[in-house]
């Protein structure tokens, strides 16, 4: 039982407000195709002394591993392209803290702005000021409700992430049994998409059934209790999908406390260090990791393309990156482990 206190909405856990799942195929194609094209263009231009560009990256908050990992990806790409990347932002997810930073940065006349807006409407005006000053803006992770002024937008495909979680649980449970979702709260676009993807994918398995959908209001304690009650209520339960960090950790703890570790499979979202620790212990069995480094990388690339007159290389629609599935079994595989979020730039 949790009540939502409107005074204390730490919304940053609900980042990555992807605009929709429609562009799934296109996005997957673009992600690979465009990446190739961009890199090619980049290696061509770095050879002659290119003009020095200053690209600013303002994340939702600077202390979160997701954004730190994005910053790492962006920095690496910037170094490759000979672009100067400036990373600045607030330490907490706050529109009132982010807005003055956005406004003040305009005075430094950067070449381009990459930003994860903390509010899809409130940040429109400050961002529009850049566009009016002739500075291209690309959103990463979150975006604006009105994307028409943007030079580009990159995010994660949450619907695909939900599908991936469903596929992984189904495979682990040999495609039969009941599953449940522990979501954060209704009306959050990112986690709702994850849930929709999960439910849609589960429909494809004739011997699997979604038995319940709970909301924990981002409380690990509530998620834990709900998981334990779900196990009691549904004897056929084989899996729980926690749609964000705390839902997943709570679900994992609940399954472990009930003594069902390894019998009921827990899928979580993101790859923060604490979740990965639980993944290694088998408390969480599956993690759907986003690819923030790639988001950062693409953001820098598009900015560079724009500045070097190759606007046609930037997709018109928001690019939605597919997610990476990690399991207890393959987390030590370097090809998978590289997607674990980092804690320092």
């Amino acid at each position: 039982m949790r009540m939502r206190n409107p005074l204390r909405n730490r919304g940053w856990r609900y980042r990555a407000a992807g605009s929709g799942a429609a562009a799934l195929l296109a996005a997957t194609a673009l992600a690979s195709g465009v990446t190739g094209a961009g890199t090619a263009a980049a290696s061509a231009t770095t050879k002659h002394a290119a003009p020095k560009y200053n690209v600013v990256l303002i994340p939702g908050l600077t202390t979160d591993p997701f954004y730190i990992t994005m910053g790492i990806g962006a920095k690496a790409e910037a170094a490759k392209l000979g672009v100067n990347l400036i990373w600045k932002g607030a330490t907490t997810w706050s529109t009132t803290l982010q807005t003055p930073i956005v406004n003040a940065t305009l005075a430094t006349h950067p070449s381009a702005l990459l930003i994860a807006p903390t509010d899809s409407k409130a940040l429109f005006k400050p961002i529009d000021a850049y566009v009016k000053a002739g500075i291209p803006v690309i959103t990463v992770d979150t975006t604006l409700a009105n994307q028409s002024i943007l030079a580009g937008a990159v995010s994660s495909d949450n619907f695909q992430g939900g599908e991936a979680a469903a596929k992984a649980i189904a495979a682990a449970a040999h495609y039969k049994g009941g599953v449940a979702v522990i979501n954060v709260e209704k009306g959050v676009s990112t986690t709702d998409l994850r849930q929709e993807g999960f439910l849609a994918q589960m429909k494809k398995y004739p011997h699997m059934k979604v038995v319940a959908t709970e909301y924990d209001n981002d409380s690990q304690t509530t998620a834990e209790s709900q998981a334990r009650a779900l196990i009691l209520a549904h004897s056929n339960l084989v899996g729980i999908f926690g749609t964000n960090l705390y839902s997943a950790q709570g679900a994992g703890d609940g399954v472990a406390a009930s003594g069902d570790k390894g019998k009921i499979f827990v899928a979580g979202y993101d790859a923060e260090p604490s979740e990965v620790k639980l993944l290694r212990q088998g408390v969480i069995n599956i993690l759907v990791a986003q690819n923030p480094a790639q988001e950062g990388k693409l953001g820098v690339q598009y900015a560079y393309d724009y500045l070097t007159g190759k606007k046609n290389l930037i997709p018109k629609k928001q690019v939605l990156l597919p997610n990476v599935v990690m399991t207890t079994q393959d987390i030590n595989n370097p090809a998978i482990a590289k997607y674990i979020y980092k804690t320092s730039l």
Binding site: M1, M3, V211, A212, T213, Y215, S225, Q226, L232, A233
Partner: peptide
């Protein structure tokens, strides 16, 4: 009572949002 609601409503298969309605 508040603690019982969380577990109880899941056990009787009431949708999660109803927990808050019930508490209110």
């Amino acid at each position: 009572i508040i603690s019982l609601l969380v577990t109880g409503l899941v056990l009787v298969n009431v949708n999660g949002s109803w927990t808050e309605v019930a508490t209110g």
